[in-house]
């Protein structure tokens, strides 16, 4: 299956700008479906970015993150061609991981 994570990590100057788009419903547990039944919460709780063996950015998310979440941040110390490992885990224990190269 194709990865749920799309990532772009671009080095400019000394900082690497990372943009990530993840496919995930991010159901809050407050929304009802067409039959009027509550759609149970299903959301990513933790998203981590690892470079050179250490976390460079960790997101703890609640239900108020929009569907198909997007996040952008920058970190220093990355070089072109370096691996950036991204992984998430949601409240049902589902998880996905991908590795991107810094461009």
């Amino acid at each position: 299956m194709a990865s749920t994570i799309r990532v772009r990590a671009i080095l400019s100057g000394e900082a690497t700008e990372v943009q990530v788009l993840i496919q995930h419903p991010m159901d809050s547990g407050f929304v009802r479906d067409a039959k009027g039944e509550i759609i149970p919460p299903h959301f990513i709780r933790e998203l981590t970015f690892e470079h050179d063996g250490k976390n460079v950015f960790v997101a703890d998310w609640g239900t108020a993150i929009a569907k198909d979440p997007y996040v952008k941040f920058s970190f220093k110390g990355g070089n072109k061609g370096d691996d950036l490992k991204i992984s998430w885990v949601d409240n049902k224990g589902e998880t996905d991981t991908t590795t991107a190269k810094i461009q």
């Binding site: 976390n55 950015f57 997101a59 703890d60 609640g62 996040v71 952008k72 970190f75 220093k76 110390g77």
Partner: peptide, 17 residues
């Protein structure tokens, strides 16, 4: 909604939705 942990070396700029 969200908490982002910023280790040393990561810039304090974040965008999300």
């Amino acid at each position: 909604a969200a908490v982002y942990r910023i280790p040393p070396g990561t810039l304090p700029n974040v965008a999300n939705r």
